[in-house]
Amino acid sequence: MGFMEYLQYGFIQRALISGVFIALICSTLGVLIVLRRLSLIGDGLAHVTFGSVALGLALRIYPLFITLPIVLVSSLAILKMTQRARVMGDAAIGVVSSIGIAGGVILASMAGGFNVDLFSYLFGNILAISREETILSIILSVIVVGVILYYYHEILSITFDEESAKASGIKTDRINKILVILTAVTVVLTMNVVGIMLISALLILPAVTAFQIARGFKSSLVISAVTSVLSVILGIFISIAVNLPTGATIVLTNFFFFTAAFLTRLGKDHF
């Protein structure tokens, strides 16, 4: 079967459309959170996602409805702990992350162990994404990108030097809050693409790929977005053609781009 024939299937169209939108927001936010040394926030919030999906399944509520608010609150809790309770950023992520995992394990065991539904969220299945989920992905992705573009200069300024940004009159607390809320929304959306276990890969890999070869902040965002989108598209087609799990294939395709960029930089540095 050729690629054009694959495109005739509705489930592949939905996977490609939602995957591309989610790849765009992951790669953009990824650049910001990696530079702010908050790379593990994706991992931490993914663990919370696990706990809230388990809660949704136990209560028989559609997991996305319960996951989004819980992950949003958790992301703000990480921020508050860092700002008010003087907990270091990585420690705050660790606290929220372990509570999420612990809660998920307890809920899963109360619900009779890890069932098929929970496993499908852990490892993701973008090919099973519904029409409604695709529309939601598009809407939320447009909102996330719109907010990033609107606050682009403020976000860049805070990312480079928060103290000076504050001295320029930027409301840094507000921008930090916006950034973690956007990350929370992105993490929840990404759950459908690569699964809870691999969310942070989609946030981190395109960004660190871009940093190998980019010559400026804007080009970092562009390279990160391009490699992320290509990884999703190639990952979906490769996984179907060779019958591999789609989420893991997308992540490994991302890793391939990272390796290529890393070797390119090494080559430039030495020759």
Partner: peptide, 18 residues
């Protein structure tokens, strides 16, 4: 951050945010 991917021009322009 020595790995910050911004050019001199981009960093100087940040001052304009005020």
């Amino acid at each position: 951050n020595p790995g910050f991917p911004s050019t001199v021009e981009e960093i100087v322009a940040l001052g304009l945010i005020a």
